[in-house]
């Protein structure tokens, strides 16, 4: 066990955990920030996606020891009231079904739009294909990203 100080959603958090602990467990079990989801634990599903200095990465793969001194944003920090353009587009297209993968989808989509405000279909497919949705919401995800990129909301 060791004391770590990490920056999540602009706030400092101190946690006392084993250095091997993946960021995902720190978020879910130690900080009770359960918006970031556990889907596989080995970086194969995308449910645990967070922003790491602005880029989309998988928190299950990131030992806490490697996360210090970096800026981490989770779904809880994406917007205070759920009104980030991606979240609004998600609601309008009724993207979520069971909802479990959607925090990860939204974090990947919002990182994509930050880098590339007007992504093509191909850009969207390439960025989003690492986030598995078993309910099969993919075609709505594409439509919602387009809506969000058009900033109609």
């Amino acid at each position: 066990m060791a004391e770590f100080s990490i920056n999540i959603n602009g706030e400092k958090h101190n946690v006392n955990v084993d250095p091997s602990t993946p960021l995902l467990w720190v978020l879910r079990d130690h900080l009770k920030m359960v918006g970031t989801k556990y889907g596989c634990g080995i970086a194969q599903c995308g449910a645990c996606t967070v922003h790491f200095n602005g880029t989309a990465v998988r928190s299950c793969q990131l030992p806490i020891s490697a996360a210090i001194d970096n800026k981490i944003t989770t779904i809880e920090g994406l917007s205070e009231h759920g009104d980030h353009p991606v979240q609004k587009a998600w609601l309008e297209h009724d993207v979520p079904q069971c909802g479990y993968c959607q925090a990860g989808q939204i974090m990947t989509a919002s990182a994509l739009l930050k880098q590339n405000p007007n992504p093509s279909d191909k850009d969207i497919d390439n960025a989003m294909s690492g986030n598995i949705c078993r309910c099969g919401t993919y075609i709505r995800i594409k439509a919602a990203i387009k809506t969000a990129s058009d900033s109609q909301l």
């Binding site: 879910r28 009770k32 918006g35 809880e76 759920g82 609601l91 309008e92 979520p96 909802g99 925090a103």
Partner: peptide, 21 residues
């Protein structure tokens, strides 16, 4: 209509089994 619990799901606030405090 849009699903009534949609806002919880896009904010990561819908509580699944292992997420109850």
């Amino acid at each position: 209509i849009n699903r009534v619990e949609g806002h919880l799901k896009v904010m990561g606030k819908a509580k699944y089994a292992s997420e109850f405090p």
